[in-house]
Simulated assay, not measured.
Amino acid sequence: MRPGDGRADGTLATVRSAADAFLDSPACANSNTRRSYTTTLDKVAVELGGDRPLSSVADEELGQALEQLWGEASVATWNTRRGAVGGWLKWCAEHGVADAAELPAIPAWCKCLSPPGSDTPVRSRTAIDRLIGRREVHLREKTLWRMLYETAARSEEILGVNIEDLDLSGRTCPIKAKGAKPRTRTRGASREQYVMERVWWDAGTARLLPRLIAGRTSGPLFIGHRRPGPGKKVDARDLCPDTGRARLSYGQARALLDSHTSIGGETGTGWDLHELRHSALTHLGESGVSLLLFMAKSRHKKEQHARRYFKPSAAVMAEVTAVLGPA
């Protein structure tokens, strides 16, 4: 394909063919990414007309299509769908689907919206300490919940950690972060081929980890209580070589936290795993830590996502205001 040709035979790329080319590219190698883009671009193609040349779509027409499809959706959905269309058009320009000047652009009035305040509950440090300190809570759950809070990491990131990944003396380990990109462009990249990030924990987790590992030297850090059933295919990295048990799944971990925090024993009324990360970041924001350090800990890529956690306490605001007082 030559830049500006649109297609190998020289015909202009249609909305549908441009979308299909993007979905088949390495940019959509991840199955979840591809699914999200497919949902968005399929609807856009229907709204605009899939058989028309992409270069014939006007900016305003594209904006009206976005407004028609997701104008009444939530802020998060609007931003996600708008971002998907923008990413697709950027890819088309970079890969010569059409001359960049001929491609439509998202109009200025279809701007990315600021996310509203989160509805996720913030649990106090006392409540978290009290939960982890309960005698009936298993050591595995104590360690997981403490580690999630102290690292402020996402649940899937910590559940994916193996014992051999841990640096116990440094209180840190590498994790495959949300949205991690592989170093190779081939599909089906292994974990080792992804760019890894690091998380750190404190004394609470450091005291629990040696007891949880208890002589194990490799395999998943958090494992279930049973071995996988016969015929169930499990990746070698997800099996403990000492016990034969499989990695604790997100669903299992979520159900365990819910069962220990449910109201009146009713399923679905307890805490969610994300609340531990959300609470940790909120507590950091209230403590007055700088935005740069906060983003280093939270690993947010955009300031706008990190700023919503900055709700300084009255004591911190009084301390800041004191700087302006008379000498």
Rank of each mutant, 00 (worst) to 15 (best):
D5Q: 13
L139S: 10
C112A: 14
A101T: 09
R299Y: 13
W145T: 01
F22D: 03
W78P: 01
P182C: 08
M1H: 07
K176V: 12
E266K: 07
R16W: 07
P182L: 08
P3S: 10
E266M: 11
H260K: 08
R211L: 14
E94S: 14
L221M: 12
C173E: 02
R254P: 05
R254H: 14
Y309T: 02
D238F: 03
S17Y: 01
S31T: 13
D99L: 14
E156R: 15
E197K: 11
R135L: 06
A13C: 06
S114L: 09
G270D: 01
G179A: 02
S155T: 13
G204P: 06
A322I: 00
V289G: 08
R52F: 11
C240P: 10
Q252N: 08
R2L: 15
L103R: 02
R125A: 11
A152V: 04
L281C: 07
P228W: 04
A322P: 06
S56Y: 05
S25I: 11
N162A: 03
D242N: 12
R183L: 15
P104R: 06
S218Q: 14
R227V: 15
L139T: 04
S118L: 00
A253H: 02
F310N: 00
S114Q: 08
G244S: 11
D99T: 03
E136V: 07
R146N: 05
L48G: 07
L62I: 04
